[in-house]
Design a protein around this nucleic acid. Structure first.
Lengths: 341, 341
DNA sequence: GGTTCAAGTCGAAGCGCTTCGACTGGTCAG
DNA sequence: CTGACCAGTCGAAGCGCTTCGACTTGAACC
């Protein structure tokens, strides 16, 4: 391996000069700079990451903690992950991958051993045991999602309250008077995962504000569970004409279920999904949806983190506005329902 | 941050002694060992990763290169990734996440800067530009999948040839005489991704061996593409009674398509999928399938890598045997077809 | 009783880089 | 013409750890 000393010798300068050429932290004559850069290329020099980290107290590595549990939709997570990696590389950082099952201990480990400079934590729960740990850690972190007590943290998320509300508003505007929210598996609610909770809040508030019926139910991933849940729902509330779904994996089967139950989409039942665009577009009919801007969120997380590393202040909470896209799964409510208002 | 010197002082020994206690590389009296370990705990000492890496020439980090392209099924990748991380942690290593879009350059970067000790590369193509780079790199690597020329490399993969063949054999055993392989999007074949190619090979060879018809067609992900592909297929070969699918995202819509075309599964059309278990189980009917043991592959990759790091020899190619699971999507061929044999 | 040897410990020398202070000329204002 | 100052460069001192060689004991052996 070629070291900075080799480069220095080759270029006929001191090692520190090479370092300054590379970092730009002191002015260097263009003559010297060129000579050093030529030597760097000629020898194929790459600074040793460990030596650099040790000397500069910066590893240029971010930790990314991904969830590893039931009920999370995998492709969305992956979009986050790749967005984080891509954004990190733009800032000349790398990404260390941690799984959530390492728990709070894992965060301490990578932080206190200076393996990383900062952390991105995904899938934060309302009462997350990692949050107190993050607060104490001697380095910045960013949460994707947010806990009940976000004091002193930096959180980034889709505005799920707005997402839930937008779905209701959209359907209410079309004349629907009875809606249901088909949510994530109950395990996700029991963990009090923020996004599920908040969608529910937005949904309920909007329904109340619009003076319409809004019932909510979790839904597991198996076909039988979906069938059972929907049957029960339509039994209890036969007048429901609008469905909001926040549960990507059930979307396909759900359409089957509705078909089997003789409900045409959108003629008998309007459907709004909260999901990634490609999922919505892949269905028949294509689903009207509220998009989860995973790339943008991952990107924003890294940008905030880099800002914090550079000492800038960043807002405690950044909520990205949801985007509603009307496709083919929503239409006006059947006439009868228009009467009451 | 507390350093090894702090621990040494606290325990009343030399720093080198602390190091030897921690690494176990020299014998230490149990008395001293206990004292040091107590000091470590008392002070909350964590060795600095960079310093350790610099001194020992080992970062204890593995690079994981994940694909970031069209046509790959995301959840399977994620399973690989988490399996790799989990296995790496068992060997006290961490995982640096790279996306394939960094290309060969990215591999050189992390390797030559000693950021990592070894690499796991996923989604290897038959003629992969990263392969020559990996050969030259001064550190071990493991490929998941394998290229045309695997000389001097270490490759791990599901035995897709066997997977393709198993599907044919299973269906042939049930009396089917005309089969089709519904493959990945054509982009995947054009990249000559190994797994797609090899499944095809196994499928074709087995069909020939059994003396039955085996046609193959790629298939894009959109509903219309699936519908078009299947219609064309059944038009060209109306006698097809068995379908092999290697394309996870189309599985759900494909079932819709068959329904729409009036083909019942399995009565009119038997279906074997090459996919993850949970996907097969989620469908109606549940699909007979060949499982991709993603966890096992990821685990095996890490184990091989660690072995190489420790200087052991490992086989160039490890093929994991596919497992066939019969579920509800296959049955005997309709009678008429039994005649010829 | 001296020699060997292993076990247990220490000190010092790096690992390859960054960064600080100091030095050298040259430029410019007074 | 002198002092101040700046651009440009160098050398040395770490960063926190591992590891090598050397040293000290005490036990084992003839």
């Amino acid at each position: 391996m070629v070291t900075i000393a080799d480069v220095a010798r080759h270029a006929g300068v001191a090692a520190s000069t090479v370092s300054y050429v590379l970092s730009g932290k002191r002015s260097i004559s263009s003559d010297t700079r060129d000579r050093v850069q030529r030597s760097v290329r000629a020898l194929g020099y790459r600074p040793n990451a460990s030596a650099r980290a040790l000397a500069s107290q910066r590893s240029n590595v971010l930790a990314l903690v991904i969830p590893l549990r039931t009920g999370m939709h995998v492709p969305v997570m992956m979009q986050f992950a790749t967005a984080v990696v891509t954004a990190a590389r733009r800032f000349d950082h790398d990404v260390l991958l941690l799984t959530a099952d390492e728990g709070p201990e894992g965060l301490e480990r990578v932080a206190q051993s200076s393996l990383v400079d900062a952390l991105v934590v995904m899938d934060v729960e309302l009462h997350d045991e990692r949050v107190p740990v993050l607060r104490e850690l001697p380095m910045p972190s960013v949460l994707i999602g947010y806990p009940a007590d976000a004091d002193g943290l930096t959180c980034i998320d889709l505005d799920f309250v707005a997402a839930g509300a937008h779905c209701v508003d959209r359907l209410a505007d079309l004349g629907h008077r009875s809606l249901a929210l088909l949510g994530t598996p109950s395990a996700v609610y029991e963990r009090q995962t923020g996004f599920a909770q908040r969608t529910l809040t937005g949904f309920a508030e909007a329904a109340e504000r619009r003076g319409i019926l809004g019932v909510e139910t979790p839904c597991e991933h198996t076909f039988d569970a979906i069938l059972g849940t929907v049957e029960q729902l339509l039994d209890d509330h036969p007048d429901i004409t609008g469905l909001v779904v926040q549960n990507e994996p059930i979307i396909g089967p759900l359409l089957d279920v509705l078909r089997r139950l003789g409900r045409r989409v959108p003629e008998d039942m309007s459907l709004m999904a909260i999901c990634a665009d490609d999922v919505a577009e892949r269905q028949v009919p294509q689903l009207s949806s509220v998009t989860i801007p995973a790339e943008r969120i991952g990107e924003q997380a890294v940008e905030s983190l880099i800002a914090k590393l550079e000492g800038s202040a960043v807002p405690e909470l950044t909520l990205l506005p949801p985007k509603v896209i009307a496709r083919a799964s929503t239409c006006e409510a059947p006439h009868g329902d228009r009467t009451t208002a």
